[in-house]
Design a protein around this nucleic acid. Structure first.
Lengths: 177, 177
DNA sequence: GTCTATATTCTGATAGAC
DNA sequence: GTCTATCAGAATATAGAC
C-alpha cells in the first residue's frame, strides 16, 4: 500500500509533472520521477512501460481535466474572459501544473504534447468567441492569455500585468463586470 | 580553413541555435552541434570549454544583437508597435533564431537564459511605453507579442492572428498607420 | 586549431527474486 | 506490485597526436 498521494499510478504522474515544472525535461529522468514518487525505477516501469508511455499517460490525464476546465470557463460567474485570464496565471492548481508540464514537453518539439495543448486552446477559443461574438477580440484575448502564461512559466512574471490587461479590456467593453 | 559560414566559433554558435530551435535542448548535444558545424567534438571543445560555456557564448551574442534590435524598433518607419508585433512572429532571421533558441533553454529553468530574455523584454517595453504614453496599453501589447511568440515557437501558429490583433489595436488607437 | 581515442558518468530499459 | 541487480547506449569531458 502506498504511503500517500493515492494510487501509485497517479502519484507517479504527479511526480513527473512536478519535476517537469520545476526543472524542465532534462531533469525529468525516470530515476528522478521514481525517487519523487517514492517508488523504485522498476516499480515505475511496471505502471509505464517506457518514458514515452509515461508522457502519454500524462497527456491523457491532462485532456480529461481540460474538458472539465472548459465547462467551468463557460459557466464562470464573472464571465469566461475573466476566468480565462485568471487561469492563465499559475495558481498552483493541479490543472495548472499539468498544463505547464505539457508546455515544457511541447517546447522540446514533441508533437503529442503540442497537439494536446492545441486541442485545449481551440476549446477555450470557441468559448471566448461564442461569448464575445467577435473573432478578432476573442483571438486577441487568447493571445494575451498565452502571453501571461508564457511569462509566468518562463519566470518573467510581472504581477501587475493582469490589472493592466483588465484596464485595456474595459475600454473595449470585453469584460462582464 | 573552415568550409563555410565564417569563423568556426560563430559557426558553432549558429549550429547550436539551429538544433535548439528544431529539436529542443535534448537534441542539442555537443556531438550533434559539432556534426552540424562540421567540426569534431574536440574541435568544438577547443572554442568552448564546456556546454555551459557554449550557452554563455550564445547568450552573449544574443544580447549584442538585441541591443541593435531595440534601436531598429525605436526608429521603425511604421512605428514601434507594428515593428514589435511583426517581429514577434518568426521571420527566419538570425535574431529570431537566437531568440527562440534562448527561450528553449529558458524553459528548462536555466536562469541565465531567463535573465537574458528578461533584459530584452524590459528594453522593448520601455520603447512601447515611451511611444504610447500608456502603461496599461504598453503592457498589454507586450503580452500580445509574447502570446504570438509563444504560439509560434510551440507550433500553435495561427497565421490570421496578426490581422485580428491589428484590428483590435486600431479600435484602441494604438497603431501609427 | 583540429583530430582521434579514451575515461566517466548518466539514462533508459530488462530480468528475475520476493 | 514492488524491489534489486545489471546491461547497453548515450552524453560530457580529458589527453595527447598532428
Amino acid at each position: 500500500m502506498p504511503a500517500d498521494g493515492g494510487p501509485t499510478r497517479d502519484r507517479i504522474l504527479d511526480s513527473f509533472e512536478k519535476i517537469l515544472v520545476s526543472g524542465g525535461t532534462r531533469s525529468a529522468t525516470i530515476d528522478a520521477v521514481a525517487a519523487e514518487a517514492a517508488v523504485s525505477k522498476g516499480g515505475l516501469l511496471y505502471h509505464f512501460r517506457s518514458k514515452d508511455d509515461l508522457l502519454d499517460g500524462m497527456l491523457a490525464r491532462l485532456a480529461a481535466r481540460g474538458a472539465e476546465d472548459v465547462e467551468k470557463m463557460r459557466n464562470a460567474p464573472g464571465g469566461p474572459v475573466d476566468y480565462y485570464l485568471e487561469t492563465s496565471i499559475d495558481s498552483g492548481s493541479d490543472f495548472d501544473r499539468a498544463l505547464i508540464a505539457a508546455a515544457r514537453v511541447a517546447y522540446e518539439s514533441e508533437e503529442r504534447a503540442t497537439r494536446a495543448l492545441a486541442a485545449l486552446r481551440d476549446a477555450w477559443f470557441l468559448v471566448l468567441r461564442d461569448h464575445l461574438g467577435d473573432d478578432s477580440l476573442a483571438r486577441t484575448i487568447q493571445l494575451i492569455g498565452d502571453g501571461l502564461y508564457f511569462d509566468d512559466t518562463t519566470g518573467l512574471t510581472d504581477k501587475t500585468s493582469l490589472s493592466h490587461v483588465r484596464n485595456v479590456l474595459k475600454r473595449l467593453g470585453a469584460l462582464d463586470s
